[in-house]
């Protein structure tokens, strides 16, 4: 059976972030991925120099309107994925185009709506301030099925600071109360010097977490690959986030990062501290295979 996904993320000519990081892994898992680009950048900021253009709201609307003339988006797509938008104007255009698909939504019908609220990382916003508010307003409409904020984004959206597991737990419940997104994952949370991936599912009203084996290196595009893998497993699991889904994805991502890290180390002759471009194409085999995902799950 055919699986169709609409992916609305950034485009770069060179490097693997945004759509360039999400699309190939999904295609390797058998998804037909339609792509709307929110940017037409040369590369990503990790490279130091940074060029290219943002697409404007009108361009994005025009493309999505074009798709609407081909078929009913609600019927055609199994998943709609929204990620990095460079401005509040683009973010608003995307949401205005998508909202009608979901307005009449019965939760079990229509495309799964996945939003990666790309706002910033490590204490720093990398979108204009207004984008935060657009996200907040939209998330509150109760249309999103799965979202993947990082720790910084989660803290920002819940106005909390993660110092202990208690903070994480109350932030998760607060997030659910405020935004009514039934499933979400915080890719990495740092507590007591150890990294964990944290998931919440309204189906069981539980917060659970799995340990991440840390690799001392920064990886650009890692969050985008994670969202792609998670989306695939989430959909395959009948649109429910379970601890099993989370462990499968965390385990697979670890293998991807570790392979990438080892290859870079072999090339450099030393441990890299940053990998700007995870070489996705070379990791095809990892995307296509299934792994056990034997990680210890804990509940909060």
């Amino acid at each position: 059976m055919h699986r169709n996904l609409l992916s609305i993320l950034s485009h770069v000519c060179h490097g693997y972030v945004g759509n360039r990081a999400c699309v190939f892994p999904l295609q390797c898992c058998g998804w037909d991925v339609d792509t709307v680009h929110t940017t037409n950048y040369l590369n990503h900021p990790g490279h130091g120099t940074f060029q290219g253009e943002k697409n404007d709201g009108r361009t994005i609307s025009t493309i999505i309107e074009g798709l609407k003339k081909l078929f009913d988006l609600r019927e055609y797509y199994n998943v709609v994925l929204v990620g990095y938008c460079p401005s509040a104007e683009v973010m608003t255009a995307v949401y205005e185009e998508l909202e009608p698909i979901y307005k009449t939504k019965d939760r079990k019908e229509g495309p799964v709506f996945v939003v990666d609220p790309v706002l910033g990382d490590n204490g720093r916003l990398y979108v204009p301030e207004e984008v935060v508010q657009v996200h907040i307003d939209f998330l509150k409409r109760g249309l999103v099925d799965l979202t993947t904020p990082n720790q910084f984004e989660m803290e920002l959206l819940t106005d909390t600071k993660f110092l202990s597991w208690n903070d994480v737990k109350s932030a998760c419940y607060k997030f659910y109360d405020t935004y009514k997104v039934p499933d979400f994952v915080i890719l990495s949370v740092l507590i007591d010097e150890q990294m964990y991936s944290v998931g919440f599912s309204a189906s069981t009203e539980t917060v659970f977490y799995v340990p991440i084996q840390e690799i001392r290196c920064r990886f650009s595009g890692c969050g985008d690959i994670f969202t792609a893998l998670l989306t695939n497993e989430f959909y395959s699991n009948g649109r429910v986030l379970s601890p099993q889904v989370l462990t499968l994805v965390v385990d697979k991502l670890h293998r991807i990062l570790l392979t990438s890290f080892r290859e870079e180390r072999a090339r450099l002759g030393r441990d890299p501290d940053v990998i700007h471009d995870i070489n996705l194409v070379r990791l095809r085999d990892l995307f296509e295979r299934s792994f056990g995902g034997d990680l210890e799950v804990k509940y909060l």
């Binding site: 485009h11 000519c13 390797c28 037409n40 697409n55 999505i64 798709l67 081909l70 194409v281 095809r284």
Partner: peptide
């Protein structure tokens, strides 16, 4: 091409819906 192991960079000459 990616599936065959090529690292492909893309310059898009047009950006169309279909």
């Amino acid at each position: 091409l990616q599936y065959l192991g090529w690292d492909v960079d893309n310059i898009n000459t047009v950006n169309f819906s279909n």
